[in-house]
Amino acid sequence: MATAQSSKQSSNQGQSAVPTMPALARALPRVEDEIRALATSSSLPIVNTFSGRITAAGGKRLRSVLILSGSLAVAGTITDKAVTAAACVELLHAGSLVHDDLMDNAEERRGVRTVNADWGPGPAVLVGDFMLARASQAALDRISPFAASRLARTVAELVEGQVLEVMDLYDAHRTPDNALRSIELKTGALFEVGCVLAAHCADADEETTTAMARFGGLFGVMFQILDDLLDLASTAQRLGKPVGNDIRQGVYTFPLLRALTDDQRTLLARRGRDLSDAELTGLLAELRQTSLVADTLAHCTSLAARAVRALPDLPDSEALGILRELPGAYLDWAASRIA
């Protein structure tokens, strides 16, 4: 989350951490084509303008890589259904970000003006809703009722995760477990559904699907914890966006809650909503002198290892190698961005 005044732009943050291969390189443009078609499929041009602009701003597309690699590892090929699944998950993610921007009163994301900044809060709700609905509709029409059901379930989990976060805003006594539960629902669920759909589009059995789901969920949690760490321990120059935004917004994250001293917790309890820039800068400087970074990276290293161990027993292939490599590659990328 970010302050109203701060920019959320990031030049495809983390993209260099994503391994690729020829089959993926050929499939990813097809995913982009489907995202664009779905995002601009409204009968109302103004909805297409805003939905299309948000999705065209890009992003890591890490979820697409997971889905395409997962389907390729299981079935040996990337089917049309897998491409559609990747587009649906990316569109769902984008729609949830439109809602996030509205709640944060953010003005930019990835260098593009947000819907709420240009058109107002009410229309932003509607554009986000359109994107979420279109993702589930495409899954129903082009993949299966199961795929549509899983996407709809994920939307519910995203909402629940956001509600848990809102309930704990500016709560200096929020527990790390509460923060972790919000992460599991907000980010873990989206990675998990991507891996479930990858297996589903490859006609995988239940055991393989369950293993893929476990891999995706663990990877998603690790991904978000690293993102939260960078907001505390990186710099605007290295990330391409301001840092310290979570604390400004009252979102006290898993890495922060595990690192706070009693005095720092008291500061947030007393000054949280009115924390000055100087106080925030001082707090971040203090945190960077502790074991915050080392402890969080160690925790994420464990999550990455658990994710790789959770992968199903599949024949060795380049695609399976990418799945094994992704958690560690993203961990290394994030560590390289720490000040």
Rank of each mutant, 00 (worst) to 15 (best):
L283M: 05
V47L: 07
P29R: 05
R30M: 14
D227N: 06
I143K: 02
A148D: 09
N48M: 11
R150W: 08
R36H: 14
L169G: 10
A285L: 09
I35V: 15
A236K: 07
G321L: 13
R150Q: 13
L44T: 13
L268T: 01
R306I: 02
T175V: 07
V251N: 03
E279V: 00
T281R: 03
L283K: 01
A56L: 12
V18P: 01
Q137F: 09
S302T: 14
Q224T: 06
R271F: 00
G95Y: 05
Q15P: 00
P145Q: 10
R153Q: 15
D263S: 14
A294D: 15
D313G: 02
L62H: 07
D316L: 14
R265D: 05
S43R: 11
D313N: 12
V112T: 15
P242D: 00
N116A: 10
M1I: 05
A73Y: 06
A4H: 15
L280E: 00
V31W: 02
R30F: 04
T40K: 06
T281D: 12
T266G: 09
Q264G: 10
I54G: 05
S11Y: 11
D101N: 05
R63E: 05
R150T: 09
V98I: 13
G328I: 03
L239I: 06
S182K: 13
F191Q: 01
G328S: 13
V221H: 06
K241D: 02
T79H: 11
L164I: 14
Q162G: 05
G194A: 10
T84H: 13
Q5K: 15
L283E: 01
L164Y: 14
V47W: 04
H299E: 14
F130C: 01
D118N: 06
T253D: 08
H173A: 10
T208Q: 00
E192L: 08
R309W: 00
D168T: 13
R153I: 08
E165Y: 12
P29Q: 08
D168G: 14
A236H: 11
I54V: 15
V47S: 01
N48R: 13
L331K: 03
Q249Y: 00
L38C: 13
G76C: 04
I78R: 02
L102E: 02
C300I: 09
L226E: 07
A17T: 06
F130Y: 11
Q224I: 09
L239H: 05
I247E: 01
T40P: 02
L28W: 09
E90L: 02
V251A: 11
G95P: 02
L151D: 02
E325Y: 11
T77R: 15
A285T: 13
S11Q: 13
A147D: 03
S69G: 05
G120K: 01
V83L: 10
L256D: 03
A202P: 10
H99G: 01
L140H: 03
E108L: 15
I143Q: 03
G194F: 05
G188N: 07
V65M: 08
